[in-house]
Simulated assay, not measured.
Amino acid sequence: MTFYTFTENKLRQFTERVFLKMGCPLADAQLAADVLLKSDLRGIDSHGVARLSGYVRLWEKQRINANPVIKIVHETATTATVDGDSGLGLVVAPFAMKIAIEKARIYGSGWVAVKNSNHFGIAGYHSLMAAEQEMIGISMTNASPLVAPTYSSERLLGTNPMCYAFPAGKYPPVIVDMATAAAANGKLEIAQRANQPIPEGWVQDSTGNTSTNPHQLKEGGSLLPLGSDKDHGSHKGYGLSATVDIFSAVLSGANYGPWVPPFVAFLEPPTDPVGEGIGHFLGAMRVDGFRPAQDFKDHLDNWIERFKSAKTVDADKKVIIPGEPEFAYEQERRISGIPLIDVVVNDLNELAKKLEIEGL
């Protein structure tokens, strides 16, 4: 396994070229590239440029509309439902979050449900949009059914991430960004590329037995909910995942549960859909709708400092603030570059050849 390092600008230009070749307008190509690069910069390698080939394959299957007409189809003063017109979720979700932020700016909070979309990258990107406006940002999405509910061996839910972003004062925002499965599917993909086993408790085989095989999903197995199994609180992860599914899809009119279309192009969407595309849910709340914004940020700074000074069971380890590792990655990678495994580099260069664009 070999790593190659690329500058942020090099990967950004390459990614924009891919989206432009798909037929995306320039602004959309730049936005989609920004979402993916944010993932790589923040150390979430599973959701960055490594996903480019997947988006292209879905576009080739005509399951992604490169030039969508995104519109509001239902609205009140503080809420809206957006139809993404089968567009890139990387473009549709920021469109929806901008609506939520504008409603929050006027009324204190804004809530937007999205249908007819696709994979939207890392949830943290969208929540951060609100945090940068002194708002609390919330984002979540349902996803391809890979997760079995507690006591089941049947795939009915996605990894269904949820993210909450809170603006701080002198510290970076507190960002709670997590999948509601025991592990995100992207982590399995990383293990597959590295040909390494995965920890116990991430997946089960088709009969419900735990497995360390990173290819288990291809062999009929399923991911487990957060908590891993019934003896370790998997019902809590199942409940969180169900919440994301209902907010993102039952509320918006998107597909939910086993009807969510798969991210991989070689699998066809269900022939009996109950909605349109993949669903998201985004929200923004003005901090000063509850107390003066500076007071909140000062106290969140104090919260951070108190937790950072907590006694630990290991003197060499400190309590980690949610979002802190990702912020550190971003600061470091903007300077030293973004590492990509050789398998990903080869895949991206093959993609460049196919699209007849300049490679890495």
Rank of each mutant, 00 (worst) to 15 (best):
A113D: 06
G186Q: 07
G169T: 05
M129L: 15
I106T: 14
W111E: 11
A194C: 09
G110A: 08
M97E: 06
G208E: 04
P145L: 07
A179V: 00
T150W: 06
V114F: 03
S127F: 08
D177E: 04
E219L: 12
T210I: 10
V174W: 02
N160T: 03
M178T: 07
D85F: 09
A143R: 04
M140S: 15
T207N: 13
K187M: 09
P149V: 00
P214R: 01
D205G: 09
G186A: 12
S127N: 10
S117P: 06
G89Y: 07
T81C: 14
L128I: 05
S127W: 05
I190N: 04
D177R: 10
D177M: 07
D205M: 00
P173D: 08
S211E: 06
A104M: 09
V112L: 14
Y107F: 15
A100M: 11
V174A: 02
P172V: 07
E219H: 12
S127E: 13
K218I: 09
V176F: 14
P167L: 12
Q196K: 13
A93M: 09
D205V: 01
M97V: 04
S139L: 00
E132I: 08
S139A: 15
D85V: 04
A191D: 06
Q133F: 06
A168V: 06
K103H: 13
I175V: 15
Y164M: 14
F120Q: 02
K218S: 14
A96M: 12
P172A: 13
G89W: 03
F95R: 01
L88V: 08
E200S: 10
D177F: 03
S109N: 08
M97K: 08
E154K: 14
G84C: 08
G108R: 03
A131K: 04
K98M: 12
A148L: 13
V147Q: 04
F166I: 10
